[in-house]
C-alpha cells in the first residue's frame, strides 16, 4: 500500500513539474511573440491615435504609407539595395563556401576569420569603420556604398548556410564525376550546383532579409537621398511616434514570416532529397 501511495505522489510531483515547465515555456513564447503580434492589429487601426486594441479598423495607415514619398522612396531603395546585395553576395558566397570546405590552404583560418568578422565585430564599430573609409572614397551617402557594405555584412550568414550544404555533399560524387571524364567546371555545374540549390536559395533569402532589415550600417552611410526603409523607420520611432510605423512594422513582419516559412519548407525539402 505504502509503496503504491509513494508512487502516486512521485507521479503527481513529476506531473506538477511538467505543468510548471510548460507554463513557463508558454510564458516565454508569449513574451517572444508579443511584439510581432501586437503591431498587426495596431496597423489596421485609426490614423489619429495609437491604440491597442484599435477602436475601429481601416486600411488608412497603409494608404498613407504607400502614398507618402518619404516612405515609398526608402522602401524602393531598400528593395533595390537588398536585391543587389543578395545577388552579389550569393555569387561570392557559393564559390567561397565550396573552396573553404573542400580545400586546405595557407591562411585559410585567417581568411575565414576575416570573412566571418562582421558576425563578431559590433555593427557600430563595423559601421563606423566603413563610414570613415567610404567618406575618403566619396562613397558615403551613395547606393553603391550601401550595396558594397551590405554585401560584406550578409556574406557570413550566407556562407554559413551554404557551407553547411556543401558539407553534406559526398566528395566521392565529385571525384567519381571527374574519374568518369568530366572537367572541373563541368563537374561543378552538373554535380555540385544542382545538389546545392536548396542551400543557395536559403542563403540568398537570408541575405535578402538581413540586408532589408539592416539598420546600423545604413544609419551611418545614409545620405539625404539614400535613406533606407529601416533608417527612415529608426528615426521615425525616435522622433515621431507616427501610427504609420505600425503599418511598416506589419509589412516587415510579413516579409520575415514569408522568409521564415520558405526557409522551413526548404529545410524540409532538403531533408527529403538527401
Amino acid at each position: 500500500m505504502t509503496s503504491g501511495k509513494s508512487h502516486i505522489i512521485k507521479d503527481w510531483r513529476k506531473r506538477c513539474l511538467q505543468i510548471l515547465g510548460t507554463g513557463l515555456a508558454f510564458g516565454v513564447y508569449l513574451f517572444l511573440l508579443a511584439p510581432s503580434l501586437i503591431v498587426t492589429p495596431v496597423s489596421f487601426g485609426s490614423k489619429y491615435e495609437l491604440k491597442f486594441p484599435p477602436a475601429s479598423y481601416s486600411l488608412d495607415l497603409y494608404r498613407i504609407f504607400f502614398s507618402t514619398e518619404a516612405w515609398t522612396q526608402p522602401l524602393l531603395l531598400s528593395l533595390r539595395v537588398a536585391l543587389s546585395t543578395t545577388v552579389i553576395a550569393t555569387f561570392i558566397a557559393v564559390p567561397a563556401a565550396y573552396g573553404l570546405v573542400r580545400f586546405n590552404f595557407l591562411g585559410k583560418k585567417f581568411l575565414l576569420a576575416l570573412i566571418m568578422s562582421p558576425l563578431v565585430i559590433p555593427s557600430v564599430v563595423f559601421a563606423l569603420g566603413i563610414y570613415l573609409y567610404f567618406s575618403t572614397l566619396r562613397l558615403g551617402g551613395t547606393t553603391l556604398g550601401l550595396i558594397v557594405a551590405h554585401t560584406m555584412f550578409v556574406i557570413p550568414y550566407a556562407l554559413v548556410i551554404i557551407s553547411a550544404g556543401v558539407q553534406k555533399l559526398d566528395p566521392n560524387l565529385e571525384f567519381g564525376a571527374m574519374l568518369m571524364g568530366a572537367g572541373r567546371l563541368r563537374m561543378l555545374m552538373t554535380v555540385v550546383l544542382p545538389q546545392l540549390y536548396p542551400s543557395i536559395a536559403a542563403g540568398a533569402l537570408f541575405a535578402f532579409l538581413i540586408s532589408f532589415d539592416e539598420v546600423v550600417i545604413s544609419w551611418f552611410l545614409a545620405g539625404p537621398n539614400t535613406t533606407t526603409l529601416s533608417v527612415k523607420m529608426f528615426s521615425a520611432i525616435q522622433w515621431e511616434i507616427s501610427p504609420v510605423i505600425a503599418a511598416v512594422s506589419t509589412i516587415l513582419t510579413a516579409v520575415s514570416l514569408v522568409v521564415c516559412l520558405i526557409n522551413v519548407a526548404l529545410q524540409k525539402g532538403g531533408e527529403q532529397s538527401s
Binding site: P35, S36, I38, D213, V215, I241, I245
Partner: peptide
C-alpha cells in the same frame, strides 16, 4: 514560435515595445 521573433526586425520589436 521562436523562429518568427528571431526573424523579426529589431525595429519592429522595439516599436512594439513602445506600444506595450
Amino acid at each position: 514560435l521562436v523562429l518568427l521573433p528571431f526573424w523579426t526586425s529589431i525595429l519592429v520589436k522595439s516599436y512594439a515595445f513602445t506600444i506595450i
